[in-house]
């Protein structure tokens, strides 16, 4: 019984560590996104600024999705 509890606790610990790491990444990506928009206003490139912005948003959306999925599944 103790062993089962220990394993369960370690899994909860793994989930908590995962969520904390993911949250740090989301905050970092928010800063990145803000900087991308700030720099795009300084230099406007006809085509490529759009690609950079899209990639930044995509990374943020994926990390938020991963956070929510992990919250439910793990």
């Amino acid at each position: 019984m103790d062993l089962v509890n220990q394993i369960l606790n370690s899994f909860i610990l793994f989930k908590a560590a995962f969520l904390i790491l993911n949250l740090i990444l989301i905050v970092f990506l928010l800063v990145v996104l803000q900087q991308v928009f700030a720099m795009s206003s300084v230099i406007t490139d006809a085509f490529d600024s759009g690609i950079i912005r899209t990639v930044a948003i995509a990374l943020l959306v994926i990390s938020v999705s991963l956070f929510l999925t992990a919250l439910v599944i793990l």
Binding site: L21, N22, L25, V32, A56, L59, L66, L74
Partner: peptide, 24 residues
């Protein structure tokens, strides 16, 4: 298995962010 899978996804997300930040 699902823990490994999720950690792997998170790891590659970190790598992707590292690449993106350096590129931009």
């Amino acid at each position: 298995g699902r823990h490994i899978f999720f950690y792997l996804l998170l790891y590659y997300l970190f790598v992707g962010t590292y690449v993106f930040v350096n590129f931009f």
